[in-house]
Computed example of a mutant assay.
Amino acid sequence: MSIGTGPSTDTLRQTLEAQLRQHSEDLAALTAAGADPGGTGEDPDTIATRAAAARRAIEEINAALSRVTAGTYGRCERCRNPIPDARLEILPHARFCVPCQARAS
């Protein structure tokens, strides 16, 4: 992927890896909290919802890292056009450009 004035693929990979570490740590803490929900003071449903969100984020980030390795990172999975740098900065695991994402929603 060629990125113009935006961040390099290496920078975005580092961002993805940092996010992966954070979500993995969050999931571990939520899993422990789910085993003893009274210990955190959180509602068990809230813990389960947050854990599910962390799992989804981990899946999305792992998929993005796979795209980096495959050389397809930064290209829309639908139209194959480049995803704008600004979108990747905000959402580094983005799979679609904004028009294709809008059509999918």
Rank of each mutant, 00 (worst) to 15 (best):
R67S: 04
R80G: 15
L65N: 07
G74D: 03
T46G: 10
E77I: 09
R80L: 14
S66N: 10
A48F: 12
A48G: 13
R80M: 10
R75T: 12
R67P: 10
G71N: 05
I47D: 10
A51I: 11
A52D: 15
A54P: 02
I61T: 09
Y73M: 06
A48M: 05
R55C: 07
I83F: 01
R50W: 00
T49D: 07
E89S: 09
I47C: 11
E60L: 11
R67E: 01
T46I: 06
A70F: 01
A64M: 03
C76R: 01
A63P: 07
D45M: 13
A57M: 14
G71Y: 11
G71S: 05
A52N: 09
E42Q: 12
A53L: 13
E60A: 12
N81E: 15
D45L: 13
R56F: 06
N62Q: 15
R67L: 04
D43S: 09
R78C: 07
R87A: 02
A86E: 14
R55P: 00
C79S: 12
E77W: 00
P84R: 14
D45C: 00
I61F: 04
A86K: 12
N81T: 12
P44G: 05
V68C: 05
E89R: 05
L65I: 06
L65T: 08
A57W: 00
E59F: 02
R87C: 04
A57F: 00
I61W: 05
I83S: 02
A54C: 09
T46R: 04
T72E: 15
I58E: 03
N62I: 08
C79R: 10
C76M: 04
D43C: 03
E89V: 11
T49P: 04
R56D: 13
G41M: 01
Y73I: 01
A70R: 12
P84V: 10
I83E: 05
G71V: 06
E42T: 00
T46C: 06
T49C: 03
P84N: 04
E77S: 14
E77N: 12
R78F: 08
I61N: 01
P82Y: 02
I61G: 01
